[in-house]
């Protein structure tokens, strides 16, 4: 079955690209790369460690806002009462800050979250997503609140600005490859085996002298840093962000991607992200729908397809572990 799942998604991706042309595929490739980084990072926490977090979008937002605040050019702003300073940082100086800021935030909240497990952990991660959104909306001196921030910097190497879609896609895929590599090193190391043991029986592994809270906190922070990286990329790619990009629904979609691809498998997260992007964007090509209903029809069909996939593959496309 796993072979079939791989074949179907990959064939589908190639067919979609051949049918729609390379231009649109490049856009979808970038969306895929950003969602895949997020999915891989969340799978570390949910799949490998067994902590179901629905607050990951908060770290994604922190990374995006750090990138926006540090690199945007505020001279465009018409409402001077909502102005933020123009710091003019280059992308590659801001990106590490996005990553570190998300990590530091994760460390601080993780110290508290480590006290919780199972359904209570889900609830507190939900609370984090709500708080993060509220901060993005209300900390107007930094985020411009509902107005959002635009003119966010694209990556530049020397005088070469990666403002083309192809260049950005390549850069995003390199970032994805690095994240996958780090994730693979983690899950194949002794550290990763302890994480899996925590997922299976936290109390049993504690009996052997492992500091479970330290391991959970470490993977939580690493995962958040990856999400911060995805956020920095997202802000730079869209060049505009506002709090609507970081609502709880996005977090739920992210959990869906991880489950769709399969828990505790890196390849599953990549496959899940690819399948989701193809499903979501593929629905733009639904035939015979009157223009007035095209958006709604797309959402309904997407929802039905996701339900069907979960009916047939509750463990995900290539998953080995179920929540």
């Amino acid at each position: 079955m796993e072979l079939w799942a791989n074949l179907i998604v990959l064939t589908w991706a190639v067919a979609f690209m051949l049918w729609q042309g390379v231009g649109f595929a490049i856009t979808l490739g970038t969306v895929f790369a950003i969602w895949a980084i997020l999915a891989v990072s969340l799978n570390l926490v949910v799949g490998f460690t067994g902590l179901l977090s629905i607050g990951h979008i908060g770290f994604f937002g922190i990374g995006a806002y750090a990138m926006a605040f540090l690199t945007s050019d505020a001279s465009y702003e018409q409402l001077r009462t909502e102005a933020i300073p123009t710091l003019g940082w280059p992308f590659f100086a801001a990106l590490p800050v996005s990553v570190v800021l998300a990590g530091v935030t994760a460390l601080l909240v993780g110290i508290v979250f480590n006290r919780f497990r199972d359904d209570i952990f889900v609830l507190v991660s939900f609370g984090f997503a709500i708080i993060a959104f509220s901060v993005f909306l209300n900390l107007r001196s930094v985020t411009r609140g509902a107005f959002g921030i635009h003119e966010i910097e694209r990556p530049a190497i020397g005088g070469w600005v990666l403002d083309g879609e192809v260049e950005f896609l390549v850069f995003a895929l390199i970032c994805l490859a690095l994240v996958v590599l780090v994730c693979w090193l983690i899950v194949t190391s002794s550290f990763g085996r302890v994480l899996t043991a925590i997922r299976e029986d936290e109390e049993a592994i504690a009996v052997f002298g492992y500091q479970v809270t330290h391991y959970k906190l470490a993977v939580w922070v690493i995962s958040a840093m990856m999400a911060g990286l995805a956020g920095g990329l997202f802000g730079s790619w869209t060049t505009f962000i506002d709090p609507n990009s970081f609502i709880l629904l996005e977090s739920m979609l992210l959990v869906c991607i991880v489950i769709l691809g399969g828990l505790a498998t890196i390849w599953g997260s990549l496959l899940g992200a690819m399948a989701f992007v193809l499903l979501d964007e593929g629905m733009r090509f639904l035939p015979f729908i009157p223009s007035e209903f095209v958006g709604q029809a797309r959402q309904i069909v997407l929802g039905i397809l996701l339900v069907l996939l979960m009916l047939f593959r509750p463990q995900g496309l290539v998953g080995r572990y179920r929540l």
């Binding site: 490049i26 856009t27 959002g148 733009r284 958006g295």
Partner: peptide, 24 residues
């Protein structure tokens, strides 16, 4: 003829909708 796309009130969806309209 109109080619209608849903931009969902979000920057990311507007970008994908825009690229679909222009590239496809």
């Amino acid at each position: 003829e109109l080619v209608v796309e849903d931009s969902k009130c979000s920057a990311q969806d507007a970008i994908t909708a825009y690229n679909k309209l222009t590239d496809v």
